[in-house]
Design a binder for these strands. Sequence first.
DNA 1: ACTATGCATTGACGAACATCGATATAAAGC
DNA 2: GCTTTATATCGATGTTCGTCAATGCATAGT
Lengths: 128, 128
Amino acid sequence: MVSGETVIMEPKRQVGQGCCTPIRPRLEDEAARDAANLLKALAEPARLQILDILVQRGGLVCVCDFEGVVGTPDPKTGQRPKQPTISHHLKVLREAGLVGYEKQGLWAYYFVHRERLADVQAVLALLT
Amino acid sequence: MVSGETVIMEPKRQVGQGCCTPIRPRLEDEAARDAANLLKALAEPARLQILDILVQRGGLVCVCDFEGVVGTPDPKTGQRPKQPTISHHLKVLREAGLVGYEKQGLWAYYFVHRERLADVQAVLALLT
DNA sequence: ACTATGCATTGACGAACATCGATATAAAGC
DNA sequence: GCTTTATATCGATGTTCGTCAATGCATAGT
């Protein structure tokens, strides 16, 4: 980091009176909470791969397509997450508004809500 | 959902032989894991607000600036997270490569690693 | 009616996380 | 030296999360 060299023009900060001018994030508490919840829904390998497949397919995908295909393989058994786990991840994505689904007979067909993905990108664009 | 109406061109899926053609996510396991770890580092209101302030300031910000300013207020006490918690969040952001810092005397000045934020946006762009 | 299938939900478990108070470290000023 | 200040780290606690086996619930096929 070349810390011996860096010169910050930072003049006169008296210890004990607070070193900096007060500041508030532009991101208000509620907006930060909402954004964090969206990001939390995304922050899982299995869920990212589910979304990837949904986008790749560009349409409706039934749940059985995800089984044995997404999620990190168990280091011991080499097995990927099973059906109840997939269903759980899909529920998380649903509740975050990132995907929707239709029931057709025995199958459930999922699709992406692209607007919601755009919301995430909008938040990240704020930090650029 | 209009589920009575939706017509999917659904040709002949025999129950029991798997309903769909096999598919793999373009997002490989390791890439998915890395992306998820980055998103996990972002998926916290306090950390989003920290990054927001860092970007807003456009330069070096010392830790004390974040105290009492970022993070969700405790519903009971109305208090925001205290110094050890802020320090913890900064460590998480550091380890994710999202921020860096320089030590100047008593103070630690943090700054954003914009390239890393770009990495996150690149992953999300894949899903669009 | 009976069986098999696709999917959701429940309950349990361990791992990971956010937060805190207390303590440690390290530099500045006396 | 000692004290104060800014930050990091440690240990404990309560909560959230990912995963599974078991179960429930429709629907399809016989």
